[in-house]
C-alpha cells in the first residue's frame, strides 16, 4: 500500500523508555496510516503493551524519550495530562486484555458508557442513552436496553469485552489500541471479538494497533506487523512480506514456535531473554541468535530496508547485521 504524507496518522520516532535504570524500549520507530491495522507482536518483555500504554500516557514512573506524533495533535509525549484527558476517547482509546478488571465493578455498564458519551461529546442524558443503546446493538449485544443496567460481573467474558469495545469506540476515535483483546477468551468467542473490532474500525475509517502474541492471528487480521524483541523493533512491514520473506533470525524463531494443527516437528529455541542489567549494548537478540557476528552485541543495527529500490520507512524494514 503506497502512502503519502497526509495519510499518516501516527509516527513514533526513537521512542526510548526507562524504568529506573532499565531500558524497557530502545529506539522504537513505527508509523501508522489512516484506516490501517498494525500488529505489535513479540514475547513477554518485548514491550508491546508498554508502547500502547505509553501512547495513552498511562504509565507511571517511566522516563520517555522520543516523539509520538498524532496527526492534528502534535507530539503526545509533550502534552500535559489535561490535554491528554481531552484526547483520550475522542482521538485515541484503548481496549484491555482483561475487560472484567478494566470495567468499574461498582457501576452498571450502561452508566460507564453513558458517562463516556456525556463527558466527551457533551450529550444530554436522553441523547447519550439513545446512543448507548445504539452502540450496544452495534457491538452485537442483544437486548441492549436490559444489558445497559447490568453490572460487569453479571456478564460473560465475551460480553464484557463487547462492552469495552462499545466504550472505546463511543466517541469515534481515529486510533484504537487493543492490548491482547482476546487472549482471555475462548477461541470461538475470540473470532467473534476480532471480527467485531475489525468491522467497526473499518466502518469508521479508524486505525487500529493490536498487541498480539499469536502470529497466525496477526496474519489474519492486520495489514502491517512490527516484531519486537526485548524492547527493540527487529523487523516491520506489510504482514505477508514480513512473515513470508522474513530477514531477521528472531522472526524466524517466532514463526517456528507456532504450533499449527497437524504439526509433527517442533524445534524449541534455546535460552531466554537476558535480564535488563545484562542486556547487550547492541542487538538484544544477539545472546540467543544462531547467526550472531562479533559486532552484534556491541553495535545496534539500524533499521535497513529489505527492498532498497522500493524504499520508504513504511515498507519492509529489518534491523540485523547478518540477515537471512
Amino acid at each position: 500500500m503506497a502512502m503519502t504524507e497526509t495519510d499518516t496518522l501516527l509516527t513514533v520516532s526513537d521512542l526510548t523508555l526507562y524504568r529506573g535504570s532499565a531500558k524497557i524500549l530502545d529506539h522504537v520507530n513505527l508509523s501508522l496510516a489512516r484506516g490501517e491495522t498494525l500488529a505489535l507482536v513479540g514475547e513477554s518483555g518485548a514491550g508491546k503493551s508498554t508502547i500502547a500504554m505509553a501512547l495513552m500516557q498511562l504509565l507511571d514512573g517511566a522516563r520517555i524519550e522520543g516523539r509520538a506524533d498524532l496527526a492534528g495533535a502534535g507530539d503526545l509525549f509533550s502534552l500535559s495530562s489535561r490535554q491528554m484527558v481531552r484526547l483520550r476517547g475522542k482521538r485515541l482509546s484503548m481496549i484491555f486484555q482483561d475487560a472484567g478488571a478494566a470495567l468499574n465493578p461498582a457501576y452498571t455498564v450502561g452508566r460507564q458508557l453513558i458517562t463516556t458519551l456525556r463527558r466527551n461529546l457533551g450529550l444530554t442524558r436522553p441523547e447519550a442513552y439513545r446512543r448507548a443503546v445504539d452502540l450496544f446493538a452495534q457491538v452485537g449485544i442483544n437486548d441492549a436496553e436490559a444489558r445497559l443496567s447490568a453490572f460487569p460481573h453479571q456478564l460473560s467474558g465475551g460480553m464484557q469485552q463487547r462492552v469495552m469495545v462499545a466504550i472505546a469506540l463511543a466517541c469515534n476515535p481515529d486510533l484504537l489500541l487493543a492490548d491482547e483483546p482476546t487472549s482471555a477468551l475462548d477461541v470461538t468467542i475470540q473470532a467473534q471479538i476480532i471480527r467485531l473490532i475489525l468491522s467497526l474500525t473499518r466502518e469508521r475509517g479508524a486505525s487500529c494497533i493490536f498487541v498480539l502474541h499469536d502470529l497466525a492471528l496477526a496474519s489474519q487480521s492486520c495489514d502491517r506487523i512490527v516484531v519486537l524483541y526485548a524492547g527493540q523493533v527487529v523487523e516491520s512491514g506489510p504482514v505477508a512480506e514480513v512473515l513470508n520473506n522474513h530477514r531477521h533470525p528472531y522472526t524466524r524463531q517466532l514463526k517456528s514456535c507456532v504450533v499449527e494443527i497437524g504439526r509433527a516437528d517442533l524445534v524449541a529455541p534455546e535460552g531466554t531473554v537476558p535480564p535488563h542489567d545484562q542486556m547487550p549494548k547492541g542487538c538484544r537478540f544477539s545472546t540467543r541468535c544462531p547467526r550472531a557476528l562479533a559486532r552484534c552485541s556491541d553495535d545496534a543495527p539500524p533499521p535497513m530496508p529489505a527492498n532498497p529500490d522500493r524504499g520508504g520507512p513504511h515498507d519492509h524494514v529489518f534491523a540485523c547485521w547478518n540477515p537471512e
Binding site: V187, A191, Q192, R195, L198, S219, Q220, E260, I261
Partner: peptide
Amino acid sequence: AAPRFFEPMPEPL
C-alpha cells in the same frame, strides 16, 4: 476458529 496463517477469518460460531 483456531488461527491459521493467512487464511481468511472464518465465520465464527
